[in-house]
Design a protein around this nucleic acid. Structure first.
Lengths: 127, 127
DNA sequence: ATATCTGCAAAGTTTTTGCCGTTAC
DNA sequence: GTAACGGCAAAAACTTTGCAGATAT
C-alpha cells in the first residue's frame, strides 16, 4: 500500500497513518514510518522538522513546479505559514548553489528547504 | 548559569549539558532545555532539526557576519556539512524576502536557515 | 523455497512536566 | 514575603526495533 501519499501537505506521521487506515484498515503505524523514511531517502518525500518534536512530511515537489514553496515558522506557537514570494529569484540562486555544492562535496542533491524563524503577531501581543 | 553558549556549533542538548556540567556541576539537563528554548525564542540561539530526532543548537549569528552559513544534509547517514557559498547573493535575496514576509504576515523575523538535502558520496557507493 | 514485506508489541530516545527547595528582590 | 529560578525524578511524545506470520517470486 504505497501509492497514497498524494494527500495534502505538512502531514505528521500520525496524520498520514490516519489517512492510510481509511484506505487500508490493517496498515500499521510502523509501515507508515518505514515507507516515509524510504520515500524521503529517495527524494520522493521531503521530511521537515520545524522544531516541535514531530516530523512533518510533504511531497517533494520539483522546484520548477509552481507548488514549490518555503516556510515561515513562529518559534512560540509553531504556526507554519507557506510562502512563495521571490521563488523565481530564489530558484536561480538555489540552482547555482546546488550545482556548486554537488561538485564540491560530491553530494547528489535532490531538494532544499528555506525556513524563516520569527514570532507571529498573535504571540508578540500575548507576550 | 547562562553565559556559556559561546561554545562551538551544531551541539545537541546533551552536548551542551555535558559542557555545562564542567562549568557548574550542579546544573541539570532540564535547565539546559529551558535555557535553550528561551534563547531560541528570543533569537539568540538557532534550533536546527536535521531529521535525526535530536535537535541541534547553534548561536544565531547575525546574517551579516561572516560566520553566517547554511547546511547540506545527507538523508542517509545524517552527515551535516556547513557551506558558505554564494552567501552574499543569498543575503540580498533573504533580506528582500524577509521584509516582504514580515509585512505580509506580520511576523517579527530574526533568522533563517537553508538546507540542501541529498546523499553523500559515501552513502551513494554503499547502496 | 527464499526473500521481502508487514503488523504488533515492546523498547529506545529525546524532551517536557510536576514538584519542591533555593535564590533573588 | 513573594516571585522567579533550578534540579531531580517521573512522565510524555515520537520513533525504531525484534519477531513472527503473511505475501510475493
Amino acid at each position: 500500500m504505497n501509492l497514497l501519499r498524494n494527500t495534502e501537505k505538512h502531514l505528521s506521521a500520525e496524520d498520514i497513518y490516519i489517512d492510510a487506515v481509511r484506505i487500508n484498515p490493517s496498515i500499521g503505524l510502523t509501515t507508515v514510518y518505514r515507507t516515509l523514511d524510504l520515500f524521503s531517502q529517495i527524494g520522493v518525500v521531503q521530511k521537515c522538522d520545524f522544531g516541535d518534536g514531530r516530523a512533518r512530511y510533504e511531497l517533494a515537489d520539483n522546484p520548477l513546479k509552481k507548488s514549490h514553496h518555503h516556510h515561515l515558522v513562529c518559534v512560540k506557537c509553531k504556526t507554519i505559514v507557506d510562502y512563495t514570494d521571490f521563488i523565481g529569484e530564489e530558484l536561480e540562486l538555489m540552482q547555482k548553489t546546488e550545482k556548486a555544492l554537488s561538485l564540491k562535496h560530491r553530494f547528489k542533491i535532490f531538494n532544499h528547504t528555506i525556513h524563516f524563524y520569527g514570532i507571529c503577531s498573535k504571540c508578540r501581543l500575548e507576550a
